[in-house]
Design a protein around this nucleic acid. Structure first.
Lengths: 132, 132
DNA sequence: CTGGATGCAAAGGGTTTGCACGTTT
DNA sequence: AAACGTGCAAACCCTTTGCATCCAG
Protein backbone atom coordinates (compact mmCIF):
# COMPACT_ATOMS: atom_id res chain seq x y z
CA UNK A 1 0.00 0.00 0.00
CA UNK A 2 1.23 3.46 -0.80
CA UNK A 3 -0.16 6.89 -1.42
CA UNK A 4 -0.22 6.57 -5.20
CA UNK A 5 -3.24 4.34 -4.81
CA UNK A 6 -6.53 6.08 -4.88
CA UNK A 7 -9.32 5.22 -2.55
CA UNK A 8 -12.99 5.77 -3.02
CA UNK A 9 -15.27 7.09 -0.37
CA UNK A 10 -16.81 4.57 1.95
CA UNK A 11 -19.35 5.22 4.64
CA UNK A 12 -17.80 2.60 6.87
CA UNK A 13 -14.35 4.13 6.59
CA UNK A 14 -15.73 7.59 7.25
CA UNK A 15 -17.42 6.38 10.40
CA UNK A 16 -14.30 4.64 11.64
CA UNK A 17 -12.38 7.86 11.28
CA UNK A 18 -15.15 9.80 12.99
CA UNK A 19 -15.08 7.40 15.90
CA UNK A 20 -11.34 7.74 16.25
CA UNK A 21 -11.62 11.51 16.08
CA UNK A 22 -14.37 11.52 18.65
CA UNK A 23 -12.72 9.52 21.39
CA UNK A 24 -9.65 9.67 23.53
CA UNK A 25 -9.84 6.03 24.42
CA UNK A 26 -7.55 4.67 21.70
CA UNK A 27 -9.85 1.77 20.89
CA UNK A 28 -8.96 -1.60 19.46
CA UNK A 29 -10.20 -2.78 16.08
CA UNK A 30 -12.68 -5.00 17.81
CA UNK A 31 -14.06 -2.17 19.92
CA UNK A 32 -14.64 -0.11 16.81
CA UNK A 33 -16.23 -3.11 15.14
CA UNK A 34 -18.66 -3.62 18.02
CA UNK A 35 -19.52 0.05 18.10
CA UNK A 36 -20.33 0.14 14.39
CA UNK A 37 -22.05 -3.22 14.21
CA UNK A 38 -25.42 -1.75 15.16
CA UNK A 39 -25.06 0.89 12.50
CA UNK A 40 -23.88 -1.56 9.83
CA UNK A 41 -25.36 -4.92 10.76
CA UNK A 42 -23.40 -6.70 8.05
CA UNK A 43 -20.11 -5.14 9.01
CA UNK A 44 -17.21 -7.55 9.26
CA UNK A 45 -14.20 -7.26 11.51
CA UNK A 46 -11.98 -7.89 8.52
CA UNK A 47 -13.32 -4.80 6.87
CA UNK A 48 -12.61 -2.72 9.96
CA UNK A 49 -9.01 -3.86 9.78
CA UNK A 50 -8.86 -3.14 6.07
CA UNK A 51 -10.12 0.36 6.60
CA UNK A 52 -7.85 1.01 9.54
CA UNK A 53 -4.93 0.08 7.31
CA UNK A 54 -6.16 2.40 4.60
CA UNK A 55 -6.62 5.25 7.07
CA UNK A 56 -3.06 4.68 8.25
CA UNK A 57 -1.87 4.67 4.68
CA UNK A 58 -3.65 7.96 4.16
CA UNK A 59 -1.92 9.33 7.22
CA UNK A 60 -5.12 10.02 9.10
CA UNK A 61 -4.53 7.73 12.05
CA UNK A 62 -1.78 5.75 13.68
CA UNK A 63 -1.52 2.31 15.18
CA UNK A 64 -0.30 2.06 18.74
CA UNK A 65 1.15 -0.97 20.37
CA UNK A 66 2.26 -1.34 23.88
CA UNK A 67 3.14 -4.98 24.07
CA UNK A 68 -0.32 -6.39 24.44
CA UNK A 69 -1.53 -8.99 22.00
CA UNK A 70 -3.73 -6.50 20.20
CA UNK A 71 -3.18 -3.04 18.81
CA UNK A 72 -4.92 0.20 19.53
CA UNK A 73 -5.63 3.01 17.13
CA UNK A 74 -5.27 6.72 17.51
CA UNK A 75 -7.12 9.36 15.52
CA UNK A 76 -4.16 11.66 15.95
CA UNK A 77 -1.54 10.65 13.40
CA UNK A 78 1.19 12.78 14.91
CA UNK A 79 3.74 11.24 17.20
CA UNK A 80 2.92 11.91 20.80
CA UNK A 81 3.38 10.23 24.13
CA UNK A 82 0.93 8.00 25.93
CA UNK A 83 0.32 6.85 29.42
CA UNK A 84 -0.64 3.20 29.81
CA UNK A 85 -2.25 2.05 33.03
CA UNK A 86 -0.74 -1.26 34.01
CA UNK A 87 -3.79 -2.17 36.01
CA UNK A 88 -6.78 -1.42 33.78
CA UNK A 89 -4.98 -1.18 30.47
CA UNK A 90 -6.37 2.22 29.62
CA UNK A 91 -4.35 4.45 27.33
CA UNK A 92 -4.38 8.20 27.54
CA UNK A 93 -2.56 10.98 25.78
CA UNK A 94 0.22 12.71 27.58
CA UNK A 95 1.20 16.22 26.72
CA UNK A 96 4.86 17.07 26.56
CA UNK A 97 6.12 20.60 26.04
CA UNK A 98 7.63 21.40 22.71
CA UNK A 99 10.75 22.49 24.48
CA UNK A 100 11.05 19.15 26.23
CA UNK A 101 10.40 17.30 23.03
CA UNK A 102 13.33 19.03 21.45
CA UNK A 103 15.48 17.95 24.36
CA UNK A 104 14.49 14.35 23.96
CA UNK A 105 15.14 14.41 20.25
CA UNK A 106 18.53 15.82 21.09
CA UNK A 107 19.43 12.91 23.32
CA UNK A 108 19.54 10.55 20.44
CA UNK A 109 21.89 12.69 18.42
CA UNK A 110 24.50 12.32 21.09
CA UNK A 111 24.86 8.69 20.34
CA UNK A 112 26.38 8.25 17.00
CA UNK A 113 26.21 7.75 13.35
CA UNK A 114 22.65 6.68 12.90
CA UNK A 115 20.06 8.83 11.21
CA UNK A 116 17.21 9.18 13.62
CA UNK A 117 13.84 10.11 12.23
CA UNK A 118 11.56 9.79 15.21
CA UNK A 119 11.22 8.57 18.73
CA UNK A 120 8.54 6.98 20.81
CA UNK A 121 8.21 7.87 24.46
CA UNK A 122 5.53 6.19 26.52
CA UNK A 123 4.93 6.09 30.22
CA UNK A 124 3.57 3.22 32.29
CA UNK A 125 2.03 3.24 35.71
CA UNK A 126 -1.26 3.38 37.54
CA UNK A 127 -3.94 5.75 36.37
CA UNK A 128 -5.95 8.10 38.48
CA UNK A 129 -8.94 5.77 38.66
CA UNK A 130 -6.96 2.70 39.63
CA UNK A 131 -4.78 4.43 42.16
CA UNK A 132 -7.50 4.44 44.81
CA UNK B 1 3.31 -17.11 36.71
CA UNK B 2 4.79 -15.33 39.66
CA UNK B 3 7.88 -15.40 41.76
CA UNK B 4 6.47 -17.67 44.43
CA UNK B 5 6.88 -20.50 41.96
CA UNK B 6 10.11 -22.34 42.09
CA UNK B 7 11.91 -23.42 39.01
CA UNK B 8 14.37 -26.24 38.60
CA UNK B 9 17.52 -25.98 36.63
CA UNK B 10 17.27 -26.75 32.96
CA UNK B 11 20.11 -26.92 30.50
CA UNK B 12 17.97 -25.46 27.75
CA UNK B 13 16.96 -22.50 29.86
CA UNK B 14 20.55 -21.88 30.92
CA UNK B 15 21.66 -21.83 27.31
CA UNK B 16 18.89 -19.44 26.30
CA UNK B 17 20.03 -17.04 28.97
CA UNK B 18 23.66 -17.46 27.93
CA UNK B 19 22.76 -16.65 24.37
CA UNK B 20 20.88 -13.54 25.39
CA UNK B 21 23.78 -12.46 27.57
CA UNK B 22 26.24 -13.08 24.80
CA UNK B 23 24.66 -11.05 22.05
CA UNK B 24 23.61 -7.51 21.40
CA UNK B 25 21.30 -8.48 18.59
CA UNK B 26 18.08 -8.77 20.59
CA UNK B 27 17.06 -12.00 18.89
CA UNK B 28 13.57 -13.34 18.33
CA UNK B 29 12.36 -16.57 19.90
CA UNK B 30 12.74 -18.27 16.57
CA UNK B 31 16.32 -17.10 16.13
CA UNK B 32 17.20 -18.53 19.52
CA UNK B 33 15.41 -21.73 18.61
CA UNK B 34 17.38 -22.12 15.40
CA UNK B 35 20.63 -21.38 17.15
CA UNK B 36 20.02 -24.03 19.81
CA UNK B 37 18.51 -26.63 17.52
CA UNK B 38 21.91 -28.07 16.61
CA UNK B 39 22.79 -28.34 20.26
CA UNK B 40 19.44 -29.85 21.28
CA UNK B 41 18.12 -31.64 18.21
CA UNK B 42 14.80 -32.34 19.89
CA UNK B 43 14.28 -28.77 21.01
CA UNK B 44 10.85 -27.34 20.30
CA UNK B 45 9.99 -23.75 19.65
CA UNK B 46 7.26 -23.99 22.26
CA UNK B 47 9.83 -24.80 24.88
CA UNK B 48 11.91 -21.80 23.90
CA UNK B 49 8.86 -19.64 24.48
CA UNK B 50 8.15 -21.33 27.78
CA UNK B 51 11.66 -20.70 28.97
CA UNK B 52 11.71 -17.12 27.76
CA UNK B 53 8.58 -16.53 29.82
CA UNK B 54 10.18 -18.12 32.85
CA UNK B 55 13.32 -16.05 32.43
CA UNK B 56 11.16 -12.95 32.27
CA UNK B 57 9.31 -14.05 35.35
CA UNK B 58 12.64 -14.47 37.09
CA UNK B 59 13.58 -10.98 36.03
CA UNK B 60 16.59 -12.05 34.02
CA UNK B 61 15.48 -10.81 30.64
CA UNK B 62 12.89 -8.57 29.08
CA UNK B 63 10.67 -8.76 26.06
CA UNK B 64 10.88 -5.96 23.56
CA UNK B 65 8.28 -5.07 21.02
CA UNK B 66 8.43 -2.41 18.45
CA UNK B 67 5.28 -3.00 16.51
CA UNK B 68 6.46 -5.86 14.38
CA UNK B 69 4.48 -9.06 14.42
CA UNK B 70 7.08 -10.81 16.53
CA UNK B 71 8.86 -9.92 19.74
CA UNK B 72 12.52 -9.65 20.50
CA UNK B 73 14.26 -10.52 23.73
CA UNK B 74 16.92 -8.68 25.65
CA UNK B 75 19.33 -10.22 28.13
CA UNK B 76 19.41 -6.94 29.97
CA UNK B 77 16.30 -6.76 32.14
CA UNK B 78 16.75 -3.11 33.02
CA UNK B 79 14.81 -0.48 31.17
CA UNK B 80 16.93 1.14 28.53
CA UNK B 81 16.42 2.73 25.16
CA UNK B 82 16.79 1.11 21.77
CA UNK B 83 17.38 2.20 18.26
CA UNK B 84 15.38 0.39 15.60
CA UNK B 85 16.48 0.57 11.99
CA UNK B 86 13.44 1.05 9.83
CA UNK B 87 15.21 -0.43 6.85
CA UNK B 88 16.86 -3.62 8.09
CA UNK B 89 14.93 -4.07 11.31
CA UNK B 90 18.01 -4.36 13.47
CA UNK B 91 17.73 -3.32 17.09
CA UNK B 92 20.61 -1.87 19.06
CA UNK B 93 21.03 -0.49 22.52
CA UNK B 94 21.21 3.23 22.95
CA UNK B 95 22.96 4.75 25.88
CA UNK B 96 21.36 7.67 27.60
CA UNK B 97 23.06 9.59 30.38
CA UNK B 98 21.72 9.11 33.85
CA UNK B 99 21.21 12.83 34.03
CA UNK B 100 19.12 12.82 30.90
CA UNK B 101 17.14 9.87 32.11
CA UNK B 102 16.20 11.77 35.20
CA UNK B 103 15.00 14.60 33.03
CA UNK B 104 12.81 12.34 31.00
CA UNK B 105 11.34 10.75 34.06
CA UNK B 106 10.60 14.23 35.28
CA UNK B 107 8.61 15.14 32.19
CA UNK B 108 5.90 12.73 33.11
CA UNK B 109 5.48 14.09 36.59
CA UNK B 110 4.48 17.42 35.15
CA UNK B 111 1.36 15.96 33.76
CA UNK B 112 -0.89 15.02 36.53
CA UNK B 113 -2.30 12.66 39.00
CA UNK B 114 -1.08 9.35 37.67
CA UNK B 115 1.52 7.26 39.38
CA UNK B 116 4.21 6.63 36.84
CA UNK B 117 6.48 3.67 37.38
CA UNK B 118 8.51 3.55 34.21
CA UNK B 119 8.86 4.87 30.72
CA UNK B 120 9.91 3.49 27.40
CA UNK B 121 11.89 5.63 25.02
CA UNK B 122 12.89 4.20 21.67
CA UNK B 123 14.32 5.80 18.59
CA UNK B 124 13.64 4.91 14.99
CA UNK B 125 15.66 5.71 11.91
CA UNK B 126 18.29 4.33 9.59
CA UNK B 127 21.28 2.53 11.03
CA UNK B 128 24.88 3.08 10.12
CA UNK B 129 24.99 0.13 7.75
CA UNK B 130 21.85 1.02 5.88
CA UNK B 131 22.60 4.68 5.56
CA UNK B 132 25.04 4.14 2.70
C1' DC C 1 -18.70 0.27 -17.15
C1' DT C 2 -14.45 -0.06 -14.17
C1' DG C 3 -12.24 -0.85 -10.21
C1' DG C 4 -12.31 -0.06 -5.37
C1' DA C 5 -15.20 -1.69 -1.09
C1' DT C 6 -17.51 -5.32 1.47
C1' DG C 7 -18.94 -9.76 3.79
C1' DC C 8 -17.77 -14.18 4.57
C1' DA C 9 -14.90 -17.62 5.68
C1' DA C 10 -10.52 -19.44 5.54
C1' DA C 11 -5.78 -18.87 6.05
C1' DG C 12 -1.63 -16.73 8.39
C1' DG C 13 1.69 -16.36 11.89
C1' DG C 14 3.51 -15.69 16.39
C1' DT C 15 2.64 -17.56 20.89
C1' DT C 16 0.50 -20.59 24.27
C1' DT C 17 -1.07 -24.94 26.13
C1' DG C 18 -2.73 -29.98 27.07
C1' DC C 19 -0.83 -34.30 27.42
C1' DA C 20 2.27 -38.03 28.11
C1' DC C 21 6.94 -38.84 28.94
C1' DG C 22 11.54 -37.52 30.72
C1' DT C 23 14.42 -35.48 34.31
C1' DT C 24 15.77 -33.03 38.50
C1' DT C 25 15.63 -32.97 43.47
C1' DA D 1 8.28 -40.54 44.59
C1' DA D 2 6.83 -35.75 43.56
C1' DA D 3 6.85 -32.10 40.61
C1' DC D 4 8.98 -29.46 37.22
C1' DG D 5 10.81 -29.64 32.26
C1' DT D 6 10.22 -31.17 27.48
C1' DG D 7 8.54 -32.50 22.75
C1' DC D 8 4.78 -32.72 19.99
C1' DA D 9 0.86 -31.12 18.10
C1' DA D 10 -3.17 -28.73 18.56
C1' DA D 11 -5.26 -24.65 20.00
C1' DC D 12 -5.39 -19.53 20.45
C1' DC D 13 -6.01 -15.00 18.96
C1' DC D 14 -5.35 -11.07 16.39
C1' DT D 15 -4.91 -9.86 11.73
C1' DT D 16 -4.79 -10.59 6.80
C1' DT D 17 -6.55 -12.33 2.47
C1' DG D 18 -9.11 -14.76 -1.57
C1' DC D 19 -13.29 -14.63 -3.75
C1' DA D 20 -17.76 -13.39 -5.33
C1' DT D 21 -20.68 -9.57 -4.94
C1' DC D 22 -21.78 -4.71 -4.24
C1' DC D 23 -21.35 0.03 -5.09
C1' DA D 24 -19.01 4.61 -6.02
C1' DG D 25 -17.36 7.53 -9.71
Amino acid sequence: MNDTMKYRKSRQRERILEILHGTKSHPTADTIYIELKSEFPDLSLGNVYRNLNILMDQGHIQRLDFGSTFNRFDGNPHIHSHFICEKCGSVSDLEIDHKDQAEIAGLADKSGLRKISRYKLDFYGICEKCIH
